[in-house]
Design a protein around this nucleic acid. Structure first.
Lengths: 184, 184
DNA sequence: ACCGGAAGTAAGTGACCAATAACTTACGCC
DNA sequence: GGCGTAAGTTATTGGTCACTTACTTCCGGT
């Protein structure tokens, strides 16, 4: 028998790493770096906890991979939105893409918040490698928006500022009909 | 002798609670709720770790007290700034106050980030008490800005959005001369 | 058919940490 | 000046967690 009533799907290491990253984004988004146990990630993947450490050297490496993926995918969402938009409609297209993220993929926004505080902690602890990697990934997001908005730095700032406020209000759990959303 | 070469300043419980809150803001701001040990807070205060639990029932209670204080003080900073400003200059006065926070009190901004993700984690874990308390404190901040800006919700959103983007860029550790700051 | 390597597990280990218990020290007040 | 009470300590405990070691299971190529 394969294993007594146990549906174990064998995958290549590369495929498993992929599922670990997906699971890690979900878990880290909810409970943050320190608040997420590797056990929780492994359970979500459907694999034993020690096996994670054959796929990734450390918990930090898992977080970094998840963080990079998350920023990368967010950048792609905006890139795709702008791609299929009229020449002057980048602003609206990206705003719509953001709305879509809010309703369909809130964990991606939560994860961004977790990334920010994780970088701050790492920097405070003297680790600049991690922050450097994340800043690089985040810059690509910034540059993507900058380019789409015709190279207008003020406009880029305004767009990203709105985005970060949305992230904040979502984190705080204000319901969509609350008055703090009035200004949008 | 009081104690062999040990400078132990005896305080009232209320005074001690006060220093615990100050220390907690510093520590939680740097390393977050889960990443901060009560030992670290106690060391900064200069008391033994178990004594914290005579001043506060749980670690969570310490965090909540620190969070409330932090939001309250931020609100006061803006209120004071607006108070001594010309009738139409609330916007600039608050922006200047924010600049002052960035350079003089960055830990207060870091703490805000930590508060946001802590609320999200608590909500995800089914605890709505904590989030509710924080939302109330944050709303006072929002209302303060709203009032100062003449009841204009759009303007309030714009101001707070800029603030949260600043928090984010600071968390990520972008140096002040980096191009991501160009739009400010 | 079989064997080498890749996928995966079970059982620990040492470190850390929130909270408790039991005890000691100092100050204010009569 | 002693005594009750508030301020503080040391020692400990039960639990969690990242990571290691040593083992087992399965599949593909020859």
């Amino acid at each position: 028998m394969t294993n007594n009533l146990r549906l174990m799907v064998r995958m290549s290491a590369e495929e498993r790493r992929e599922s670990v990253i997906r699971a890690a984004i979900t878990e880290f988004a909810r409970t943050g770096y320190k608040g997420t146990s590797t056990e929780a990630i492994a359970r979500r993947v459907g694999v034993s906890q020690p096996y994670l450490f054959r796929l990734f050297p450390t918990k930090e490496a898992i977080f970094l991979a998840a963080a990079r993926r998350c920023l990368e995918e967010t950048r792609e969402v905006f890139a795709k939105a702008v791609e299929g938009a009229p020449p002057r409609g980048a602003q609206q297209a990206m705003a719509a893409a953001y709305d879509h993220l809010i309703s369909e993929d809130p964990e991606k926004l939560q994860m961004q918040m977790q990334i920010y505080v994780a970088v701050a902690s790492a920097e405070a602890a003297g680790d600049h490698e991690f922050g450097s990697a994340i800043r690089k990934a985040w810059l690509e997001l910034w540059d993507g928006a900058h380019l789409a908005l015709g190279g207008d730095a003020k406009e880029t700032t305004r767009f990203l500022a709105k985005g970060t406020l949305i992230n904040t209000l979502m984190s705080l759990g204000f319901p969509p009909d609350h008055r703090v959303w009035d200004g949008f």
